Lab assay of single mutants.
Amino acid sequence: MTYKAILNGKTLKGETTTEAVDAATAEKVFKQYANDNGVDGEWTYDDATKTFTVTE
């Protein structure tokens, strides 16, 4: 399944996708990606669109 992350960081804005077996696995991948890029904020998840959003 393909999951998407939308990054609304102070220094990084954009989107990325990952293939994962479930939302929990995708969330770990996206949170690591955000952390590696200095983005730390509030996370939300929309199951209907399989989209995570982080906003700083």
Rank of each mutant, 00 (worst) to 15 (best):
E27D: 04
G14P: 03
D40S: 13
D40E: 14
T25D: 10
D46G: 00
T16L: 15
E42T: 13
T55R: 05
D47G: 07
T55Q: 07
V21L: 12
T53Y: 13
E56M: 06
A20K: 01
T16E: 05
V54L: 13
D22G: 04
A34G: 03
V21R: 12
G41V: 03
L12W: 15
K4Y: 14
E19P: 04
E56W: 12
Y33S: 01
T18P: 00
A20I: 01
N35H: 14
A23Y: 13
Q32S: 09
E27H: 12
D40I: 14
T2A: 08
D40P: 04
K13H: 11
L7P: 00
A23V: 12
A26P: 02
L7K: 00
V54Q: 02
N35A: 15
T18V: 14
D40R: 13
I6S: 04
K13A: 06
A20E: 04
T17A: 08
K28Y: 08
Y45G: 01
T49F: 05
D47R: 07
D47C: 08
E19V: 15
Y3F: 13
D47N: 09
E56P: 06
V21D: 11
A24R: 09
E56S: 08
Y3Q: 03
N35C: 14
L12V: 13
K10D: 07
L7A: 03
V21Y: 12
Y33G: 02
T2S: 07
L7C: 06
T55I: 09
G38P: 00
T25N: 07
A20F: 03
T17N: 05
A20W: 02
D47K: 08
N35W: 15
T2K: 10
K4V: 10
T2M: 12
G9V: 09
V39G: 03
K31N: 03
G38E: 06
G9Q: 04
N37K: 12
N35R: 15
F30E: 00
L7F: 15
A23S: 10
D46M: 04
K4Q: 05
W43R: 00
T49Y: 05
A5K: 00
E56Q: 10
T17R: 07
Y3M: 02
T51E: 04
T17E: 10
N37M: 15
G41D: 02
D22R: 01
D46R: 02
A20N: 03
A5Q: 03
N37F: 14
K50V: 03
E42P: 05
T25A: 14
G9F: 14
Y3G: 02
F52H: 00
A24P: 08
F30M: 02
A5N: 03
Y33W: 15
T51G: 00
T25C: 08
Y45D: 00
G14Y: 14
D46K: 03
A34D: 01
T55H: 07
K4P: 04
E56C: 07
K4W: 09
G9M: 10
T18L: 10
T16I: 15
K28E: 10
D22I: 01
K13R: 12
